[in-house]
Nucleic acid binder design. Structure first.
Length: 431
DNA sequence: CACCGTCAAGTCGCA
DNA sequence: TGCGACTTGACGGTG
């Protein structure tokens, strides 16, 4: 079947992924601690917890065919600080080995991205040496998980300090101080205030390292030269060598209710498809930066990987269902109707309706209706006491004495207790 | 158990 | 020169 070939071919070309955390995936939370609590005992507990969460994330990615993922810099608390003297790569060697097998066998591409506080071009030697230590830490995590140089560390250039030329020179000079294990993975990215894509291409060109194009940063902080994103993505492509793997870009959308640069709650699919269709090649990986994480990754994957079986959308529907019922009973019915014909694959239409529904203002009566539907999964097994508690909380919600979140949390606990997998995977508890 | 101030990192604008 | 704002998600103390 042609669509099958197309599907596989397209998938081999492009991976779409998400960063650091998941939404609605059980047992994937991260822990951290404050400096004053960074005892060896406490740190060990947290690292163990975080590695277990990471394994669950990787399992989830494999199960859902998500082949691009950014690991949180907080995986090891104070990983680049003397506050954490644990040889964690050694202590948890077996865990890292198991994880690296899973990553390798699934063909997943991993990355890491030190935040805005890792500044290689600072005039302060203290700050620079901490940045170098931090990059060493990131390389150590990646080396423990994946061998190839296609698994990248993404870094911003840093500050300006009232003299951009000198600041760039300092970046270039300090780059040379980096360990080869960092250098082979290091790529640089444009930011939303100081270094635009033209600046970063210049720096990447001098250092002969790949450049990541970040679309939202580019919209906020474009170079003087007026060229469109497709042009700049093409320029960045030239910086990616064979051993670096596929070109990688960052994509996010503005949150209309927050300050410039804030990431949107979800990827608006029409806007994304417009961008996707304008790309002059599909041979690149797209890292999404968005609040709803894996949810948007699945959305974009399902809308760009050619025709799939409608089962994919039915699975998504099973997870979105009760959120949609809560926010928009009308769209709930519209989506059911859309998915009746099992020979079609109306992915974009489906996500359009989901977005429309979730944008609606929630009416308390609809919240109660959805909660009662979810309660239906327990009505045969719940104890009298559980039933009384539920009915009472619905009454309290009606009177404004409790929040729907509290009710949802109780329902989620019951989903765990009675092992209702269908509900445990539902976005109802997180959207 | 829900809520909200605090933490951790470095830069930059403004007194 | 020094202080507050900025960012992000989890902690940790309060009610």
């Amino acid at each position: 079947m042609l669509s099958f070939l197309y599907d596989n071919e397209r998938r081999a070309l492009m991976s779409i992924g998400y960063a650091c955390l998941t939404v609605g995936v059980p047992n994937t939370s991260q822990k951290s601690c404050m400096l004053k609590n960074a005892s060896e005992e406490n740190l060990s507990k947290i690292i163990e917890w975080n590695l277990n969460s990471l394994e669950n994330i990787i399992d989830y990615n494999i199960k859902n065919d998500i082949k691009l993922f950014r690991i949180s810099s907080d995986l090891i608390p104070f990983g680049s600080s003397t506050a954490n003297a644990l040889p964690w790569w050694d202590i948890y060697r077996n865990d890292f080995l198991r994880l690296s097998e899973k990553i390798k066998n699934s063909g997943m591409r991993i990355s890491m991205h030190p935040g805005q506080y890792t500044v290689l071009n600072s005039p302060s030697e203290e700050v620079v040496s901490r940045a170098i230590e931090d990059l060493n830490y990131h390389a150590k995590v990646l080396d423990s998980l994946c061998k190839g140089a296609q698994h990248k560390i993404i870094l911003h250039i840093g500050g300006i300090y009232k003299d951009k030329e000198q600041a760039i020179d300092r970046f270039i000079k300090n780059y040379e101080r980096l360990d080869s294990r960092v250098k082979r993975r290091l790529v640089v990215e444009n930011d939303d205030r100081s270094y635009n894509i033209s600046d970063v291409l210049e720096i990447g060109g001098i250092l002969n390292i790949p450049v990541i194009f970040d679309d939202l940063h580019h919209q906020i902080n474009p170079p003087y030269s007026k060229r469109d994103e497709v042009y700049w993505i093409g320029e960045c492509r030239k910086t990616w060598k064979e051993e670096d793997g596929k070109q990688k870009i960052h994509y996010s959308q503005q949150n209309p209710n927050k300050r410039i640069g804030s990431h949107s709650e979800s990827i608006r699919i029409n806007e994304f498809m417009d961008f996707f269709n304008r790309l002059d090649t599909k041979v690149l990986d797209i890292m999404l930066e968005v609040k709803d994480k894996n949810l948007s990754a699945l959305k974009c994957i399902n809308c760009t990987s050619g025709a799939k079986n409608i089962k994919v959308l039915e699975e998504e529907w099973s997870r979105y269902k009760y959120s949609i019922l809560e926010s928009s009973p009308a769209n709930y019915l519209a989506i059911r109707k859309l998915l009746i014909n099992k020979k079609e694959y109306p992915a974009i239409a489906f996500y359009n309706l989901v977005e429309l529904a979730l944008d609606e203002k929630i009416i308390p009566g609809n919240s109660i209706n959805a909660a009662q539907h979810v309660w239906g999964y327990f009505k045969d097994v719940a104890t009298e006491r559980e039933k009384a508690v539920f009915l009472k909380s619905i009454d309290e919600f009606r009177e404004g004495k409790t929040s729907i979140t509290t009710i949802k949390n109780k329902l989620f606990k019951m989903a765990i207790t009675y092992n209702r997998e269908y509900l445990i995977n539902s976005y109802y508890f997180v959207l």
